[in-house]
Amino acid sequence: GDPQIEAAKDQGVVGERIDGYLGIVDGSADASLMRLVQDINNKRRAAYDKLAEQTGTTTEQVARVTGEKLISQAARGEYVMDESGTWTKK
């Protein structure tokens, strides 16, 4: 993954969400990291839209399956957001 994002994940500032997108864990991150997260999420959505079109599924389904995989692959100690919208430390 992107080195800045990996570092932010290690520091618990950024985490993977069940809906397939990156989130800012406690809502306070510097402007350039927030812009990077926004950039990656824009690109993830484009990738989900494309795969959904190829497989005749919906963007929401593709994003969800990806979110579940990314959370399962997240390292111990990283933060992840579950269905309820709360961040928990793996």
Binding site: G1, A47, K69
Partner: peptide
């Protein structure tokens, strides 16, 4: 979707 999603993740290292 599992296989397709795994490929998606592995082929876009800058995003995932």
């Amino acid at each position: 979707l599992d296989k397709e999603v795994e490929d998606l993740i592995s082929s876009n290292p800058d995003l995932f």
